[in-house]
Design a protein around this nucleic acid. Structure first.
Lengths: 343, 343
DNA sequence: TTGAAAGCGGTACCAG
DNA sequence: CTGGTACCGCTTTCAA
């Protein structure tokens, strides 16, 4: 059932039917009602392809996922963001297009999406310092919103971010309050903007207590289980091992757990551990939450917000950039860990 | 730069340019070369929206992700599948559209994708027994491939699946070989097809040794950390606790780990644990792999294969259904766990 | 081997 | 308030 058929069935012109369906004011309300009813009855849905060509808008938003050595997509946090954004798109009649491309083809992917007219805008993931994708997107004229911030990007842009610095600062303060002075930081790759901010929060909290960073207690690597395992293992085998850990992700946190366990130590008894981005929020009520976490739920919220900001930018490309900083929810478990035994 | 502009710049008709670019044989090779060169030089890319309308094909594939209480998308396995499929799509000029919808709107989402002409086919995720989506997709005439199998579906369909039964059977056999007789199964929800198959594999291995399933040692719940924690806790607190666990997912595996730890036990020393779908494949070389795993890499492969099968079905809708069963790769760690102390 | 012209299924401008 | 018509940018007969 297409517009023309529906129109002839109603004895109206396609024009009028189109107007009635799209809520144009100049249509007689009686006519509109008739049209609406017929559309519902015949289960008419306008052809997306035709709308797209006629209006020149794709009614679609792109997310480019570079994939190769590093597998961004397996990051659960990324999935949460996508889920949040996806809900917003669905509610607003937008489609979400995911492009999974080799990571050396990312730039080409953006150019392609743009010149093919496949999407009206994109979300930029995992920004790095001086991220080259920001000037690129400006150049090709594709509206975008960044999930995170790109320090050093000369050009203005819209972003939504979780306050990583603050989250790590508070987590560090919490450990310091417990009496820990040797805290191991198991961070992500520090050319990623969020990892830099996390480190800054960590350093700030230490500095506020007159402590400085011990390079032996700082690791920066991919957020995988094996990297977490290696980093924590190395620190635990130091002459003066840390009494607490602050870990960047749920996945590297698994490696840290293993390193601790495999030395006969116990998390929450011998070593305090705070894992960021772990999702134990659902355990808040009545469950024993063993570790202090910054929950992933704010990431889902970030996805929703980013999507809405992007759709707005698409509608008004010349609006000034907008920014949103979300605070991570922090959860303190009963058995987060004691004061250090020999701290 | 569009087709008409490119054509007039070349002094040719749009028809000829289109034919040259699309590899039609009737074009003079000299002309074709000239056209190709000009297209490259001007960075011409045909407008996707126009192609879609003209050809009647969307050149896009849909993945519908229902979301509400259960959050399928945060399942890392799902993300791997998407990554694998996405690569295939990109290579073949297809777009992947993700629809995140409330889980009571899934049926509507398929109808909508179909009648709007937004996609040419879909991948069906997480099939259940007698899954109603299979007759639905047949009814609306949307080509599809199932990731997994739907026992009880009367109609034929194409699918790609990992051999869950075999994976769990082998894992169970491995534990039995170590001397374990009380093995706890921490399974997913057993209305999911894959969970049923996993349980069957577990049961088969036990039966082959003359053992039967102890209902107290079988849990079936969502594959979340808290569910894993609860299930393992309950079993460990039995008068005769299990000496080994077989766990359905990386995430519930985290809960099982916690339950073990919090009782002062150690994985691999006091309790043997096998986690399915955990991704420790990258730890194979030289690293200490503490647990035996069925790796996720086969899921990525499944995504690739499913995507290719779907694109084929779209091209030839009347081809007979095709099926592929992949074997999960099994990895045995050095410290998987000893024989039971009191087994 | 090339081109003219008629769609694909809508939108939107201009008349009436 | 309603209808005719010219697109949107490409594909695809049909003629030349």
């Amino acid at each position: 059932m297409n517009l023309k058929e529906l129109a002839s069935k109603l004895g109206l012109s396609p024009t009028t039917v189109s107007r009635a369906l799209n809520g144009y004011p100049e249509v007689n309300e009686a006519t509109r009602a008739r049209v609406m009813a017929a559309a519902k009855r015949h289960n008419y849905r306008p052809n997306t392809r035709a709308i797209r060509l006629a209006t020149g808008r794709a009614m679609a938003v792109g997310h480019v996922i570079p994939v190769a050595t590093r597998h961004e997509i397996v990051n659960p946090v990324f999935a949460d963001f996508i889920a949040g954004a996806g809900e917003s798109y669905s509610r607003n009649g937008y489609d979400m297009v995911l492009s999974v491309v080799p990571d050396d083809a990312e730039e080409e992917a953006y150019r392609d999406l743009r010149s093919r007219g496949a999407v009206d805008g994109v979300i930029l993931h995992a920004p790095r310092m001086d991220d080259p994708r920001i000037p690129l997107l400006h150049e090709v004229g594709l509206p975008f919103v960044v999930h995170g911030r790109a320090t050093g990007a000369g050009l203005p842009y819209s972003w939504v971010d979780v306050n990583n610095r603050r989250a790590f600062q508070r987590a560090t303060e919490f450990l310091l309050d417990l009496g820990h002075t040797r805290i191991g930081l198991v961070n992500g790759l520090e050319f990623m903007d969020f990892a830099i901010r996390r480190r800054t929060g960590f350093a700030d909290a230490l500095a506020a207590r007159g402590l400085s960073i011990d390079p032996d207690l700082c690791a920066s690597d991919e957020m995988t289980e094996v990297a977490g395992f290696r980093a924590a293992s190395a620190m635990l085998d130091l002459p003066a091992p840390p009494t607490a850990f602050l870990v960047a992700s749920m996945i590297s946190g698994m490696g840290v757990r293993r390193a601790i366990e495999s030395r006969g130590l116990r998390m929450g008894r011998d070593v305090s551990v705070i894992i960021h981005d772990d999702d134990l929020s659902y355990m808040k009520n009545g469950e024993d939450v063993p570790i202090f976490t910054a929950t992933r739920s704010s990431v889902r919220e970030a996805g929703r917000i980013a999507a809405e900001m992007l759709m707005l930018r698409i509608a008004q490309p010349d609006a000034p950039p907008e920014t949103r900083l979300l605070e991570a929810e922090l959860i303190i478990g009963q058995s987060t860990g004691p004061a250090p035994r020999n701290g």
